[in-house]
Design a protein around this nucleic acid. Structure first.
Lengths: 126, 126
DNA sequence: GGCAAAGATGCCTTGACGGGCATATAAATC
DNA sequence: GATTTATATGCCCGTCAAGGCATCTTTGCC
């Protein structure tokens, strides 16, 4: 009984995984409790194959893990990948906690120097 | 002198923006101080057009703002979009702080029930 | 005005990803 | 073993984003 190690997506891509709206929805769902594919499908109104595929991606990336119960697969959250994202954000948190104390400073400066909204003269729309 | 409002990407997509590695690199760079396109280009070893394009995306999404100095454009961070991401993560933080206190629980259960690593019998590689 | 430096855009090509649909697998039941 | 329920995969297609390269703008300077 040998286990083939599933290719884990590089830590790098944790962000890419979460970039998909349906996947975020799934993760949020799992926050309250583990769920079967069918339950997720119903609650999020997506097709079964779609749910399975997203779960596959999430599992490969370590965001979730599954447990078998009869024909069902019960998926639940795993914390690590999201913690990586947290970790990346940490330095920024320090940054903005500094800047949000005095947001006026920001705004003020904004008005003086005409805010760069694109260098080329703005074309209508587009 | 009318300002055309630039289409801001929906809050939704903040995640997608950060999913791009080069953009994350740029944001991290800007953490220490504002920078010109040329500086970013050199420090990150990317082509100038690429840098400009990413900055454009970042600016449209509100991650950065620019300031003019001579022919240069000095870009600097804006906190809001990253804070949105933080906000989304918050509920999960609560989740895992619960689960990491006793990670053994996790692991133990894992060993009893054979961990589902894909339902179909694993094929070599692939 | 003409030139140079610094950026911004446009166009094209390529590759990755997500959805739909059909189908293969798994597990339980009779 | 056949059938049913619950999932996982394969395949095809359309879309969209990123990089490369060439080119247009902007701004400063002479």
């Amino acid at each position: 009984m040998r286990y083939i190690r599933r290719r884990m997506s590089t830590p790098e891509s944790s962000f890419a995984i979460v970039a998909e709206p349906n996947r975020r929805a799934i993760l949020t769902l799992l926050l309250s409790s583990e769920r079967s594919v069918g339950e997720i499908q119903r609650e999020l109104q997506m097709s079964q194959p779609s749910v399975s595929k997203h779960l596959r991606v999430l599992r490969d990336a370590g965001f979730v893990e599954a447990r078998i119960e009869a024909q069902k697969r019960l998926y639940r959250l795993k914390p690590e990948p999201l913690m990586e994202i947290e970790a990346w954000l940490a330095p920024f948190r320090r940054f903005w906690s500094k800047h949000l104390d005095a947001p006026e400073k920001h705004l003020d400066r904004m008005e003086e120097e005409p805010h760069v909204q694109g260098t080329t003269k703005e074309k209508e729309e587009k």
